[in-house]
Amino acid sequence: MATGGRRGAAAAPLLVAVAALLLGAAGHLYPGEVCPGMDIRNNLTRLHELENCSVIEGHLQILLMFKTRPEDFRDLSFPKLIMITDYLLLFRVYGLESLKDLFPNLTVIRGSRLFFNYALVIFEMVHLKELGLYNLMNITRGSVRIEKNNELCYLATIDWSRILDSVEDNYIVLNKDDNEECGDICPGTAKGKTNCPATVINGQFVERCWTHSHCQKVCPTICKSHGCTAEGLCCHSECLGNCSQPDDPTKCVACRNFYLDGRCVETCPPPYYHFQDWRCVNFSFCQDLHHKCKNSRRQGCHQYVIHNNKCIPECPSGYTMNSSNLLCTPCLGPCPKVCHLLEGEKTIDSVTSAQELRGCTVINGSLIINIRGGNNLAAELEANLGLIEEISGYLKIRRSYALVSLSFFRKLRLIRGETLEIGNYSFYALDNQNLRQLWDWSKHNLTITQGKLFFHYNPKLCLSEIHKMEEVSGTKGRQERNDIALKTNGDQASCENELLKFSYIRTSFDKI
């Protein structure tokens, strides 16, 4: 039985969820670079991206490699990797027998973001014989899940209580170790020597080791999670996991709180800001991140802002960003909400898709409305799209047979046209069989910064309504002859009103 693990408890099935942008060198404390989270699957090609990484700022997932063999891993080693800020997950990587050479110096898994409450997941690794993470000293947050690894031993010899604050939620089941077939031998045991430290858990006094050649490092209890030197002297209180010299914040392997210019500090002093819960960055760093993602459509890219001495992905609820200094300031009234469309555009074809934009005031991208039916549609669209004030790209209304009016965009005031449909149009209306009105132009103002209007096959939309939009939106004169079809717009509506004058002759039985 794995020490510190839980057996036999019912657990939810383990679901495996399925960018080499360097964020800056980590400095003297770390020998390499800070790398983003990685999802490495199918083959070993991307694994080489770990070569210079000291910190993975995010998670590391290595999974679904069915053609790899043990010899493929023999020359692979990433000794610079010290810390993973989120979680480490391995799933069905064939041929991998140990992690001792792959990650010989991995010391800390912070667990800032977890995989279903777990910071370390080893699942269905069919050839893994031992973990071998002999320098792993601290899992700051989260638990361990090690399950269905039929060859995995050296679990009962690990004292997880020396690595985690609590072992109650560890789930370590259905491994070879369960069948008591392992016969784990710690260093020196074969020669009758006791080389590794022994600890007591559940009444068992057991030597602690990761492999037959690597003991588990056990520091004096007084050192807590700070770690200790090879001689057993406690590291500085700002260290986490390990250090090369005692009581020196510049000799830590990793930091308990924050890293700044080669030393570990309790908090980031001005003019620095907390970033990702582990390091200090200056304003320029946060500003660069903001600008890199301002026009990016890459998933996970955030326009970072500053709030409460932190550089964070977005302002919290009730705050909006001051564009001059990136500071989050309290909103006066309802907060603006910028919604970034991942692929640059979004099609609204149902109430469900409209709900995804609920509360958005600025759309960074283009909207395509293609709704053919739905219950209580006008009210639903207004509830979900009615706060949109600005669209950076274009607005396209296409084959939306259920629409009679666009009044559900009740606050839309600006279409920038930074991206144009077919390279020309910022407003595009095609084949809307029941569209009769755009907006009530006596109450609604709309500016279209650039781009043209396109109207074709809107049989109940009168040309007068379209011409009014040209005047109000500032697009009059931009359109070419064929942009607004004269014969297919309003051709099934009563669009022309003329005053009919009647004269009559009164007659009676005795007068003409």
Rank of each mutant, 00 (worst) to 15 (best):
H302I: 13
N42D: 02
V218F: 12
T68D: 01
C255E: 00
V144P: 03
E147P: 00
H290E: 03
T107K: 02
E151T: 00
K224F: 07
H274L: 06
G142S: 02
P316R: 02
C239Y: 00
T107G: 02
H28D: 08
T229P: 09
D86H: 15
N242M: 08
I139K: 00
W210I: 04
T157K: 06
D248F: 01
P271D: 05
D261G: 14
P270Y: 11
Q216S: 02
I56F: 00
H48R: 06
L29E: 10
T250M: 09
W160I: 00
R279E: 01
L128W: 00
S161V: 05
C209K: 01
L240T: 14
C215I: 05
C268T: 02
T329S: 08
L76F: 11
I109S: 00
N138M: 06
D178G: 10
Q276N: 11
G232A: 08
H214W: 08
G37H: 03
S166H: 12
L136T: 02
D248Y: 00
Y134R: 12
D288G: 11
K292W: 05
V144T: 06
R297I: 08
P249T: 11
T211H: 03
R298C: 09
E97F: 13
A198R: 12
G111C: 00
Q299C: 08
Y118Q: 05
T189L: 08
E33A: 12
N175T: 05
H226L: 08
M38G: 12
L133K: 00
A198C: 11
A190T: 10
T189H: 13
I139L: 07
P70D: 11
K67A: 06
A190F: 11
Y118H: 07
C293Y: 07
T189C: 06
T189G: 09
N179M: 08
C243Q: 00
C243K: 00
L326P: 08
G142K: 00
N179A: 10
N170Q: 05
H59M: 06
T194H: 13
L63I: 00
G183C: 15
E130I: 08
A156E: 04
C239T: 01
Y273A: 13
T250D: 14
M65V: 05
V253L: 11
Q204S: 08
S166R: 10
F258C: 05
L102Y: 02
C228T: 00
C328M: 02
C239A: 02
G300V: 10
E180W: 14
P220M: 00
L89P: 01
D288S: 11
M137I: 14
S112I: 14
V108C: 08
C153L: 01
K176S: 02
G188M: 07
L114S: 01
D159R: 03
C223L: 01
C239G: 02
G37S: 11
D101T: 13
E314G: 10
C328Q: 03
T199S: 09
S317N: 04
F285I: 03
I139E: 00
C264P: 00
N43G: 10
P316I: 06
N175H: 07
L155Q: 04
T68L: 04
D165A: 09
I158G: 02
A190H: 13
A230H: 14
L64M: 02
P313L: 02
D178M: 12
Q216V: 03
D277P: 06
T68R: 06
Q276K: 09
A156L: 05
S237F: 10
K129I: 04
D178Q: 12
K80V: 07
G300H: 08
G32M: 13
C293I: 09
L81S: 01
S284V: 05
H307Q: 07
P246A: 06
S296I: 07
C264A: 01
F283E: 09
L240A: 09
P316N: 07
C311Q: 01
P79G: 08
Y304W: 15
F285S: 03
K294V: 03
P270T: 08
T221R: 15
D184K: 15
N195G: 11
F103N: 00
P36I: 09
C293V: 06
L128S: 01
Q299Y: 06
P36T: 08
K67S: 04
L131A: 03
T140Q: 07
R256C: 04
R145G: 00
L106R: 02
R110Q: 14
G183H: 13
C153H: 00
E168D: 01
V126T: 01
I306D: 11
W278E: 02
E238D: 04
C215V: 05
T329E: 09
P269Y: 05
P187G: 05
D75A: 07
G300R: 13
I185V: 14
Y118S: 01
P269W: 07
G203W: 07
L29C: 00
G111P: 00
T189M: 07
E238M: 10
H274V: 09
A119D: 02
L106D: 00
E33R: 15
